[in-house]
């Protein structure tokens, strides 16, 4: 998949915008850091999320990671497949392992997120 069109956050989520619907997942770098994903606690449908609010949790054997909403909006879809196959987040972080979709309150918000290049240089300098 062409990840160059995606937008990223400093908390390692990616966002793919189509109209006013944002699909959200975590980066390849993040899934490697988390290691084996064993459980995904998805957000409730229709939940309103504020940008940078914790939307859901990804669990590995020895850790739990908050996943933050990259933009304001309402949850309109969650990846039900992850309930039985959480390993999809590891195997296919950008496609089958997507997490949830938000109907954006303000689609323009995504513009201010990181580009792939900016994210790559961010993660090479940042501490986790």
């Amino acid at each position: 998949m062409d990840t160059s069109k995606l937008k990223y956050t400093e908390t390692h989520e990616w966002v793919s915008l189509s109209g006013n619907v944002a699909t959200i997942g975590i980066s390849d770098h993040a899934q490697k850091e988390i290691s084996d994903v064993v459980f995904v606690e998805l957000p409730a449908m229709s939940r309103s999320l504020k940008q940078k609010e914790s939307a859901m949790v990804i669990e590995s054997v020895k850790a739990a990671f908050d996943i933050y909403a990259p933009v304001n909006g309402k949850v309109i879809a969650v990846n039900e497949k992850l309930k039985n196959k959480p390993e999809l987040v590891n195997q296919s972080p950008y496609q089958d392992g997507w997490l949830f979709k938000i109907e954006c309150s303000n689609p323009g918000e995504a513009d201010s997120l990181l580009t792939e290049d900016a994210y790559n240089s961010f993660k090479s300098t940042a501490h986790h």
């Binding site: 064993v38 459980f39 949790v57 669990e59 590995s60 054997v61 020895k62 850790a63 739990a64």
Partner: peptide, 13 residues
């Protein structure tokens, strides 16, 4: 197992 629920991992959550 299912230790991510517990205090030594999830701490205040």
């Amino acid at each position: 197992t299912l230790q991510a629920r517990e205090q030594h991992i999830r701490r205040e959550k």
